[in-house]
Design a protein around this nucleic acid. Structure first.
Lengths: 218, 218
DNA sequence: TCTATATAGTTGTAAATTGCAACTAATTAA
DNA sequence: TTAATTAGTTGCAATTTACAACTATATAGA
């Protein structure tokens, strides 16, 4: 059984560094495109992987050392033209991680590049990244998704800046706080972020809470 | 090359009949589950299919006779447990068609069942349909998607009823019309739908228009 | 021809939400 | 003490949405 179709997973891992949305690329260890920067990806292992999500987690862990970032299926790219080895399917995922966690878990094999300034990449990886950026931006307009680009605890100002950096435009402070408050997916932690000015309340995502979606009305 | 992974496409084809959202099922022609009702689906042909979207179109045409319904990728289901033949990938699509077009193009091999009253189906097809219904409902709250469940031309009242039947709740007439008007994706046609009461203006989707999305603001 | 009725389509306004700007609060540095 | 800077709140105008009543146009039947 099987039709000689190459079946892979690829992961677009986002992080926010220096105020810019960046994507993690790794050097390919084998042909095709050996030595070039590309998305972390690999074959699905029919023995071993439970499903493609597990495969994506495994591949991401192997290539970047990340343990359990936010991970969600993006889209499946397929066809005879996208891989020189033959007709292929790539089940793609996107993942979010804070730069702190990335720095502490990644074993320095990966490269960070700004999503708005990418070189030409192998396969259809530019297209996949563009698709992931579009998804991230659009989903950020109606969900708590950008939270996962921050560390465990963060201030509301940091959260707003994260939204602004992902979306590429400024948000109103009071409206933003009202919205976050209404959605009720954050809880204050005891600590306070102290710095050179007025200290800020710290928050974290309420435990056992799925990704919160904002209401839409037609 | 290839890892012995079964690679298929499955399509959830929706239509609206008797005011109910229904899904098209076909009898399986071969094992496993030969003779049972299931989603129209089949192997990807690495020779012949351009990509999985083409494969989905081909399969849908072969099994239901439909030529070019609205078709969009849904999700990719995968794993070792979902198909008795082995580790498998199903790239799933959902499609929308008006009952008129379905009746005229389908060669009567297919069965229509209400999505809220399905029997147990083979593989993970119940899960796939549930997933498709969720997607259709949620996307209908912020897009022109339900248009594709109607014939070429329709009245605004018919369009509103279509939204209401998909979403499962009533909408306000004036607000609905304002929204549709603002989005500007319909154009009036010359004809008028005449009936037993006041005649209604007929509309169609403006040509060369992508699926219109409503604005969302965080 | 007149009237009742049913559906199409519009209008007015109250209620809710959002956008904007100014305000208060708390800290450090000088 | 004061200036500066960031945190966080408040008030209100502007906009959007929800709701209900209104007008318009057809058929059917008396």
């Amino acid at each position: 059984m099987g039709q000689g179709i190459i079946t892979t997973v690829d992961v677009v891992l986002f992080t926010l560094k220096e105020g810019r949305l960046q994507v993690v690329l790794v050097r390919r260890e084998r042909d095709p495109y050996k030595g070039q920067l590309a998305l972390p990806g690999g074959y699905i292992h029919a023995d071993g992987d439970i499903d493609s999500q597990s495969a994506a987690r495994r591949v991401l862990g192997d290539k970047t050392g990340l343990v359990s970032p936010y991970l969600e299926q993006l889209f499946t790219f397929s066809g005879g033209a996208r891989d020189p080895r033959g007709w292929s399917v790539s089940i793609t995922y996107y993942a979010l991680v804070s730069i702190d966690v990335l720095m502490s878990q990644d074993k320095a094999r990966s490269t960070l590049l700004r999503v708005d300034d990418l070189p030409q990449l192998p396969f259809d990886h530019n297209r996949i990244i563009d698709f992931a950026v579009d998804r991230l931006r659009s989903k950020s307009t109606y969900s708590a998704l950008p939270c996962h680009l921050l560390p465990e605890v963060f201030t509301l100002t940091e959260l707003q800046q994260t939204y602004e950096r992902v979306l590429g435009y400024k948000l109103d402070k009071s409206a933003f706080r009202r919205k976050i408050n209404d959605l009720d997916f954050l809880e204050a932690v005891d600590e306070i972020r102290t710095g050179v000015h007025r200290p800020a309340r710290l928050y974290r995502i309420k435990p056992a809470r799925n990704l919160v979606l904002f209401d839409r009305t037609i």
